[in-house]
Design a protein around this nucleic acid. Sequence first.
DNA 1: TAGCTTTGATGCTATAAAACATACGAATTA
DNA 2: TAATTCGTATGTTTTATAGCATCAAAGCTA
Lengths: 234, 234
Amino acid sequence: MYNNTDFGIKDIVDNQKSLFYVLTPEEKEELQHHISLSNYRKNEFIFKEGDKPTGLIILVDGKVKIYKEGVGGREQIIRMAKPHGVIGYRALVSSENHIASALTLEESVICSISADFIMTRALKNSDFAFKIIQKLARELAFSNGRMVTLTQKHIRGRLAESLILLKDKYGVENDGTTLRVYLSREDIANLSNMTTSNAIRTLSTFANERVISIDGRKIKVLDANRLERVSKLG
Amino acid sequence: MYNNTDFGIKDIVDNQKSLFYVLTPEEKEELQHHISLSNYRKNEFIFKEGDKPTGLIILVDGKVKIYKEGVGGREQIIRMAKPHGVIGYRALVSSENHIASALTLEESVICSISADFIMTRALKNSDFAFKIIQKLARELAFSNGRMVTLTQKHIRGRLAESLILLKDKYGVENDGTTLRVYLSREDIANLSNMTTSNAIRTLSTFANERVISIDGRKIKVLDANRLERVSKLG
DNA sequence: TAGCTTTGATGCTATAAAACATACGAATTA
DNA sequence: TAATTCGTATGTTTTATAGCATCAAAGCTA
């Protein structure tokens, strides 16, 4: 059998979808010396708001929430990360401190590539730089879109959009309906800009309306079209 | 006297703060053939949400709002642009359509650099690419910050933050207090995620509290510290 | 310059969502 | 195993803010 650690690194360098696929063979070789893997348990910080970035992080396995603390410590989840997602690169490439915290939602494996390698080697490769540009540009579009959604949609619309977002990001189990992510009601609330009570209440309402079904943290999307409509119209 | 048009282009290529400062002499030479200036009157669109980007736009002179339309056509101003600011580059570099509209707030001069030159020449220069990365990264931080502000702060805090933002962006007139930007109450509202009525009302309250003074669209910040506190605490 | 439209101002009403309270089962800890 | 905390659920109250109406002043334009 393969060693899980080696597998992770190989995949990151060689996978066609990887950021690092565009590096030259020499750069890939050097990358090997600037890469490290580590394991996190559930509910561990990968970094906190205000921290200086130590490298570019790839989530090899697991799930992570990236969130900011706002008024009175109230948490707003900025985005969710899934395996092969990149974390903490915004602060790194702009030479700033992290503006959000990253916390594992389950046992996770992360791969860290030294800040030095990214800044002094990888970014000198304009193909790699272009990959980063595309990531940032798409994330900026997402953030601007969320800004409008979270400020303008009503609770039902915001929650519906979050459920769609989770479905798109993590997909569904083999039954074709159960979301492949098991969040607390509080996290769902913090993703959707509402109180935990209202997330609970509104999920119940959706379940009564047969748009979803809920069984603890297991959420099935029964009527995706209807959910889409609720997201648009409330 | 100088020709306004030539002056604008020279400045864009040669100014140390310009994005294009890092281009090689050959690239700068070629840039000359891919650049054009145009004049806009007040309230003209530079581009609209959904448009395909035609180039990278630099605001040479004037003021522009970049906004998205949300629920029921309600407008949310994403950001404001000032002279030497870059507009519409997010969509361009990610090969997507514009996700927001850009509208002049006063007579403006813009300089447009062809999409082709940016994508096939400039971005191959990793120094230029890095400049774009930094711009995107900072704008993403701004957007994420605004997302939390606009969703969590109360009206007073949101309006105070917008006023500070306008002061930081456009500065003040020679008297040291009058904001160098003259927006309608509606625009102030759309920047701050509130209704026009509430923007008017809350500006009046601030004026009564002697934090600002208002005279039509002329706003003086009388007590910047207090405004900062209101922004933080409401 | 008169009439029309837009913008700013202010009061009143309606309502969405927060805040608070209580309860209960499950998980964790003593 | 009892005690305690945590996550979920649901009902009630309170409040911030949207929505609506009215009016005055300013700015346009015919």
